[in-house]
Amino acid sequence: MCVSCFTQNFWNLLVLGLADGFLYALIAIGYTLVYGVLQLINFAHSEVFMSGGFAGYFILNAVIGTSSPGGVVSVGLVVLGIAGGAMAGGGVAFLLERVAYRPLRRRHAPRLAFLISAIGASFFLYNMAGKEFGRDAVEIPAPFTSGPVFSVFGAPVTTYYLVIAISAITMLIFLDRVVAGSKLGKGIRAVAQDAETASLMGVNIDRVISQTFVLGGLLGGAAGFLFGLNTGVVYTMGFTPALKAFTAAVLGGIGNIRGAMLGGLLLGVVENFGAGLFGTQWRDVVSFGILVLVLLVRPTGLLGERLGRSA
């Protein structure tokens, strides 16, 4: 343990942690939304994330080529990449629900069947991506030149971190408003609280479930693009971030949307603090250790399982 490494780097670690945390939060929303309406963990969500990374890669490759854009063009390219990633994520999530889950629901299949189907779909998708797009990581052409924009107590905040923070906050607020105020949001919450009664009110449950997958997929796909900007894109890229995001959703209270946001940010910060304190190789040990501890004290997560709760 190196306390001085931690204290000297505190602000750096915090900035890093928040950037990771925003990405976890975006992915975690997808798990928690789907859990809310189906009481099911969509373990193929990692591939929704991955598809967003590849969509961003292909789009920016086609648009940017070898030039190095700047200024307003950069902003447009980031928006384009996010939109492309989100659409790919939403599309894959939509297909997942149709192909891997809906037929099982129709037949009233047991819980375990959904889990197997999810894992199967995940294997299928990432192997197909590996076969079609190659096994090696590729880099998304940079839509902007990242460098320090300002610093917080000596910790540089780069363009990349700002892009993550601004786009994630925008999407999280958007999601929050949709769930709290829109007709779709009310439908999602009603189905989460009491699906049968929701149908008596005129809610088409199948449609709401489908739209819930898409909504989660949009955020997950956008996160895939943002993540890929820094680390590159590869067919296995979804596994670890998605597992962490699932952890974050459980940490915050699965089914609870604000819980997923809080859990994501907290996990990002805690694991970077852990890495600073014990060394990078301890990063995952620390984050999962914290998860176990929190669940021992609060089995329903930090904010509790408030299914279908808007706030």
Binding site: K183, K186, R189, Q193, M201, V203, G308
Partner: peptide, 16 residues
Amino acid sequence: FPQMSVLENLEMGAYR
């Protein structure tokens, strides 16, 4: 719907 307000419950009745 236990976690919706009274008004939201009423609005659910008029969902269609």
